[in-house]
Design a protein around this nucleic acid. Structure first.
Lengths: 247, 247
DNA sequence: CGGCCAATTGAGAGTCGTCAAGTGTTGTGG
DNA sequence: CCACAACACTTGACGACTCTCAATTGGCCG
């Protein structure tokens, strides 16, 4: 089984301030990414056009170049966004964890392959329905804009990492971001699950598998992290990792 | 005078399909980036909250960390967005040319220094006014979302370039993008102005000044470009350049 | 128990960054 | 009007770092 294990469902609890809204009738989880500040009427309208979907490990949700028809929120598992160039070079644009929204793009066709890491559950919305809801509820569109801007900020962050950090710094930066992403606003946990194989990390950070492995070993040797399992990292020294990428 | 020359005002004509709208009363140019599909009422409302601003070469429009109060459209000249890390590493996140919109970000404070390359003219909108207009005209918010998504796509493009292309390919990619950006939808011109010094190109592409210089020389030697002036590149072989970055 | 795949570890080579010198242009001051 | 100084760009030599290639280890499943 080449796929990393998913022993925990990774269900993210809804924030308390979301109010007394029930969970989505389809995926049984709030659409955290876009709903946490919406009104009950808006959440209900979203639920009405949502559909649940389950992916087996390695399943491909969308292919590069296909017309885009849906957007998604991840409710369990994880996705990777992969771009392949004509000559075979591979770039992992990012990973979507529970609570993340997938599908913010200005293009009419998919810019990436979207693939499931482990068993993954999604909530699906047709883009047409989203457009309709957007005109009906300006608040929803404002929320989407906010989210797009946040994504833009983190994309620029990643550019800085790729352009100016050495491999060890990129790994440290990646681990800290992953911890924060999994914590979803709460305190980052010291033990971070790596839902993706080394090759995906490498292609995400512009490195090779060997370099990723060497850097992880180096961080472990320096006492900053521990590697209890292949697909798990324990962060022993947050400050030490942060000091590496003096952004 | 360390600043690249700006002999042409770079004023971009409004697209014909924009309809019979007059130019902005402040900057005398349509706010192309956001107005081209807006209604007359919306454009008028935008004009009413706009203010013109002129920057001298090297002037700093905003500092990293300052609270964000305005968003801008560039109408003449060019801007660069610069991020400096604590240990002095420099990253140029991007360049804004006439017609570009500056200020899409989810953060409350500026993530970059914004500096003028050559003499530059802007049209300025307070973020508060934009928010107000957004609720008043959902169409405007939709247009901003669309634009944010486009920016997101190009940011991911840039990540691919930084992660997986060698220096020569990055330069080729950069020149083609710059040509397209200056053409604004029309056919890219064979002669491309470089409003920025070599150091900015280097910090934009994650390279050093020396490497940028060597790669430009290499492209010239291979007959793909000509360098009639320091701050101008003639593209002699579009297909050849595109073949380099087989994305 | 053996095969398969991913991850790790090691050795060698190529590329790009660093340091240094040289070239060209611009603007200033004699 | 010319000389010089300042600055950016270019070119060259060298070295470090990361990629490539190869072998080994480790875990999971048949």
């Amino acid at each position: 089984m080449p796929w990393p294990p998913f022993d925990s469902p990774c269900l993210v609890p809804a924030p308390a301030e979301a109010g007394p809204l029930g969970p989505c009738m389809h995926c049984q989880v709030r659409h955290l990414a876009i709903c946490s500040v919406l009104s009950p009427a808006e959440v209900h309208a979203l639920d009405a056009v949502a559909g649940a979907q389950v992916l087996t490990p390695g399943a491909v949700l969308a292919h590069q170049g296909e017309p885009r028809r849906y957007v998604y929120t991840v409710t369990r598992g994880a996705l990777r966004l992969v771009r392949l160039s004509a000559d075979g070079r591979r770039q992992v644009a990012g990973f979507a964890l529970p609570g993340d929204f997938v599908g913010l793009s200005g293009a009419a066709v998919h810019q990436h392959d979207i693939e499931a890491l482990g068993e993954t559950e999604l909530c699906r919305f047709s883009m047409e329905a989203m457009r309709h809801l957007g005109t009906q509820f300006p608040h929803l569109q404002g929320k989407l804009l906010e989210r797009a801007c946040t994504e833009l900020d983190s994309a620029r962050d990643q550019m800085m990492a790729l352009a100016r950090m050495n491999p060890t710094e990129r790994i440290a930066d990646f681990l800290l971001k992953l911890a924060a992403q999994q914590a979803r606003g709460g305190d980052p946990a010291a033990s971070v699950a790596l839902p993706m194989p080394r090759g995906d990390i490498a292609d995400h950070l512009g490195l090779t598998v060997e370099t990723v492995s060497r850097c992880l070993t180096a961080l472990r040797t320096r006492g900053l992290i521990a590697l209890p399992e292949t697909y798990r990292v324990d962060i022993l020294d947050f400050a030490g990792l942060e000091a590496l990428n003096a952004a």
